[in-house]
């Protein structure tokens, strides 16, 4: 019982602390956005026969004629009521646009993260148990490559091999193509699909970007798991667990791994932030209809409400991820209490 009330207290306090962070982030982005340029002029660029009245009316329509601080307060006032405004470019409520993008981004990033962690744990544990073996050397070298090579290089290699070459090679060999699609998250007509087909189609589209992301994430995790396990496997409590007759699997995956996970969680916590923020690159390479891809588009057109909506959601996601990670510490390592 005490545990639950303490956890609730922790959650409430962390959420309260997150609120000023959220507004701090949005204020900074708001200011930078206004420094970047005038969206109305960008919107009307190249449109013929524009009179100053039209410009003036458009400004008034978007409240761009008001002082910047007033506009920000207006945005906050609307945000509290769940209204994120209307996109300049799409002429649609921003929230309706952003929600499906958020789902696509979170779906891709979390599955890539999960895949990377899952593989990294097995590979890292194997490497740690057979240090300086050929497999370990190969894995460590590949991991170094994974860390060093930027994601768009992996992405383009992936598309080249598993989409382009695979498509033409299998067509030549079997008469039909076996490949992974390099573009998009769904087939164009996915709305007509029955659920099983919809799911299969979504997974098929996700495999390539997910694997590419997983490789770049995994690289670091493998190294973290390996070094963590190298250390914990030498600890007395692992020897003691072995001495009390526990099976090899229990000794390694229960007693040693649990302790090796602590540094990994710290890193995953940081990685979630960078993965959401780094989404634009991956999503641009794979034309993935997620927040990152549209965020870049919104920046090009200075679509203020859209930029703010994406920033708000990213900020909330990252703050939430941080709180969850801090909570996980408490579960994994009892010496760390959530305060």
């Amino acid at each position: 019982m005490i545990e639950i009330t303490r956890l609730a207290r922790f959650l409430i306090r962390r959420i309260l602390f997150s609120i000023p962070v959220f507004f701090g982030v949005t204020i900074i982005v708001w200011a930078l956005m206004y420094a970047a340029g005038d969206p109305v002029r960008l919107l009307l660029a190249g449109v013929p026969y524009i009179t100053p009245e039209v410009v003036e009316n458009l400004r008034r329509y978007y409240h761009l004629d008001r002082p910047v601080w007033e506009q920000y307060l207006f945005w906050v006032f609307n945000l509290v009521q769940g209204n994120l405004g209307e996109s300049f470019v799409y002429n649609q409520p921003v929230l309706q646009l952003v929600i499906p993008w958020t789902i696509e981004t979170v779906k891709l990033q979390l599955s890539a993260l999960a895949l990377a962690l899952f593989l990294a744990i097995f590979i890292g544990v194997y490497s740690a148990r057979h240090p300086y073996s050929i497999t370990d050397m190969a894995v460590t070298t590949l991991a170094l490559l994974g860390v060093s090579m930027p994601i768009f290089v992996w992405g383009i290699f992936g598309i080249l091999i598993f989409s382009s070459y695979a498509h033409s090679a299998t067509t030549a060999l079997f008469g039909f193509p076996i490949y992974f699609p390099p573009v998009g998250a769904h087939a164009w007509n996915y709305r007509t699909f029955p659920f099983p087909l919809f799911l299969a189609d979504a997974i098929w589209h996700m495999i390539l970007p997910m694997c590419v992301l997983a490789i770049t994430y995994m690289a670091l995790y493998v190294r973290l798991v390996r070094s963590g396990m190298r250390e914990t496997l030498e600890q007395d409590y692992v020897l003691a667990a072995r001495a009390s007759g526990l099976s090899d699997r229990k000794v390694v995956y229960k007693h040693a791994l649990r302790n090796a996970l602590i540094p990994l969680i710290t890193y995953v916590g940081l990685a979630i932030a960078t993965s959401f923020a780094g989404a634009p690159i991956t999503e641009t390479v794979f034309t993935w209809p997620g927040m990152g891809y549209y965020y870049v588009q919104a920046l090009y057109s200075l679509d203020f409400p859209l930029i703010m909506a994406v920033i708000s959601i990213l900020t909330i996601l990252i703050l939430a991820a941080n709180i969850i990670v801090d909570m996980t510490y408490g579960f994994i390592d009892p010496r760390i209490t959530v305060e």
Partner: peptide, 16 residues
Amino acid sequence: AISFQDPSTSLNPVFT
């Protein structure tokens, strides 16, 4: 069975 020298390291810190 064996009991180890240093009890502060021979019990796993993350399990009861």
